[in-house]
Design a protein around this nucleic acid. Structure first.
Length: 574
RNA sequence: CGGGGCGUAGCUCAGUAUGGUAGAGUACUUGGUUUGGGACCAAGGUGCCGGAGGUUCGAGCCCUCUCACCCCGACCA
């Protein structure tokens, strides 16, 4: 390609609607251009890089035995009604009617479509397993698109679905996909972690997220500084806190007047005890499909409740803060809510954190104003009346559950892949059954596997840039080598550049020649902004038989003999 | 969906307190001088001031309503 003929609109200006480095740089360097909220044009450079990412994803999946298909972007609403997700997705599903007044939605993900594709074809265990995927435009009418390609409304996703005769085979495929995904992200040059994730409402027994480590990531991860444990904060576990460095305290059971002392801090001061001994009650209003309840979560004074864990522990749709009236109407007294004498009725649920199991002594609210109980023992609480669950939001510095000496630290991550052990969540309602070895009809066991392909482009840039611009990894760069002719009016320079250019083109090396009538500084800054892995600089020293190569990643220039230039380039781009 | 911000030239932004003929930089076109880190000189074109309604002799500026975009949060198989 000739730069002088290429559509590469670069800019010095920071676009006024961009915040993230990846967003700013992709726009400034002419890879993408915003159209409307969450919608982007891919310009020639962006399209080239996107296609490279797509090709790498496809290559590795095919190598693992997956088969690419292509399903329509426009999907009949009936299917979504059949699975029940038309309601669940809500406004995120963009719906419209065709000329015959049929209702359609733009596909936000394709579980339904894929199950519908195979349900009448895969009838026997002999045809299983199958793993089908597509790399396809998706549309989700996000409440809040942001950060450029990071969270667009229209985006490109690789979505894969596997079908199995049993749980074990599905798990085998799940781990195969985990390894395949790792290979993909390694080839893309990314620094990433595989972490445990909440599988929440989608169900299934396990899921893993692939997180690109970046400060701008939308997710918080807790990772071990010693072993390879990592988890989304929503699901991260820690080694249960031990009573280290805290002296055991003798406390007689008693009801104690604690006038107007409501906070954990005040209680700890009042009783002169560490907050370890205090049971903290966190009150929320739990929303269910048909109504709501007051939910009380008990954790130790120094701990925080992780909302996602809390939701999962009571199978609620969401938790919101209750109003003072709602708390009082439930017979509760804010600041004095405790484990003893808790009002018992259908509209109140309580969950106790596992780390409080068998704890003693404990200080807890008396469920009447201005009183707490002290010296309470949680030993031998009847299980039928007391639900225990892990509710803790892990903190930095907490000990790792999986190794001897590690402790947890927070990182920010960009979710670029997510794999699920789905089970029969979709095959059952959609009637995707097969005949097993005993001739019995059973729903297929499914796995589902996603990669945010367009998001990957911004994740790569987010992780690979400097103050001068993008540093494109060789595997993703739109051109591997940029030939920069410093002064095209110098006929020797130009002729030398053109010669190298045609040689590289003849060898099928993706090359661009900067033959624009601009000054050196202008062109080298564009080269750095766009992030070509290598730039061959042909300038004044050509007269002395020398040219230079700029290595964008190492940010160094080195001089070589001009007659070695071609060989050196071929060596570098291999 | 709650809270906040913003909308003026292709782009980045000033002008709005106090209403009075639309501005800068950059980009672009032409000519010339330059040619190793976003050059210089000269000349030139560039606007439904997001939209609608209102107040006024007069509105980019004041009022009302709308739309778009961005940020924080909620949400995000």
């Amino acid at each position: 390609m000739r730069f002088s003929r290429a559509y590469i609109p670069t800019s010095k200006e920071i676009p006024n609607d961009a915040v993230l480095p990846s967003h700013i740089l992709l726009v400034r360097a002419g890879y993408i251009k915003g159209v409307a909220s969450g919608l982007y044009n891919f310009l020639p450079l962006g399209k080239k890089s996107l296609d490279k990412i797509r090709a790498i994803v496809k290559e590795e999946l095919d190598r693992s035995g997956c088969q690419e298909v292509d399903l329509p972007f426009v999907t009949p609403a009936e299917l979504w009604e059949e699975s029940g997700r038309i309601a669940k997705f809500g406004k995120e599903l963009l719906r419209f009617r065709d000329r015959k007044d049929g209702l359609f939605v733009l596909g936000p993900t394709h579980e339904e479509m894929m199950v519908a594709l195979v349900r009448h074809q895969l009838n026997s265990y002999k045809q299983l397993p199958q793993n089908l995927y597509q790399i396809k435009t998706k549309f989700r009418d996000e409440a809040r698109p942001r950060f450029g390609l990071m969270r667009g409304r229209e985006f490109i996703m690789k979505d894969g679905y596997s079908f199995h005769e049993n749980e074990n085979d599905m798990k085998r495929e799940f781990y195969l996909m985990q390894e395949t995904y790792k290979r993909i992200f390694i080839r893309l040059g990314l620094d990433f972690r595989v972490v445990e994730a909440d599988s929440g409402a989608i169900g299934g027994s396990g899921s893993r997220e692939f997180m690109v480590i970046a400060n701008s990531g939308e997710d918080t991860l807790a990772v071990c500084n010693s072993c390879d444990y990592g988890a989304n904060i929503e699901t991260a576990k820690r080694r249960p806190h031990q009573q280290e460095n805290i002296d055991q305290i003798e406390m007689e059971f008693a009801k104690f007047k604690t006038p107007d002392i409501k906070t954990i801090d005040d209680l700890a001061k009042f009783f002169h005890v560490p907050d370890w001994f205090i049971a903290k009650a966190v009150v929320k209003k739990a929303i269910y499909e048909n109504g709501s309840k007051i939910a009380i979560f008990f954790v130790r004074g120094g701990d925080e409740v992780e909302e996602k864990k809390a939701i999962n522990s009571i199978n609620a749709l969401e938790l919101v803060d209750p109003t003072i009236e709602e708390i009082e109407n439930a017979g509760l007294h804010a600041g004095f809510i405790g484990l003893l004498n808790l009002p018992q009725n259908e509209n109140i649920v309580k969950v106790i954190d596992l780390e409080l199991k068998n704890a003693e002594p404990i200080i807890t609210g008396a469920n009447e104003p201005d009183f707490h109980y002290i010296g309470v023992s949680l030993k031998n609480l009847p299980d039928d009346k007391n639900k225990f669950a892990d509710l803790i939001r892990v903190k930095e510095g907490d000990k790792c559950l999986h190794c001897e000496n590690g402790s947890l630290i927070y990182k920010r991550g960009i979710e670029v892949g997510h794999i699920f052990q789905l089970g029969t969540k979709y095959s059952e309602p959609l009637g995707a059954n097969f005949l097993d070895r005993d001739g019995k009809s059973r729903p297929m066991v499914m796995g589902t596997y996603g990669i945010g392909v367009s998001r990957l482009l911004s994740a790569i840039v987010e992780q690979s840039h400097d103050e001068n611009g993008i540093v494109m990894p060789l595997a993703v760069a739109p051109y591997k080598i940029n030939i920069l002719v410093s002064n095209i009016k110098n006929s020797d320079e130009l002729a030398f550049g053109e010669n190298i250019y045609s040689n590289l083109i003849a060898k099928n090396i993706e090359t661009i020649i900067d033959d624009r009538n601009e000054r050196f500084g202008f062109k080298i800054r564009d080269a750095e902004l766009i992030g070509f892995p290598y730039t061959l600089i042909i300038g004044k020293s050509l007269a002395n038989g020398k040219v230079e190569i700029l290595d964008r990643k190492k940010a160094v220039k080195f001089e070589i003999d001009s007659d070695q230039a071609l060989n050196k380039i071929l060596e570098l781009v291999e």
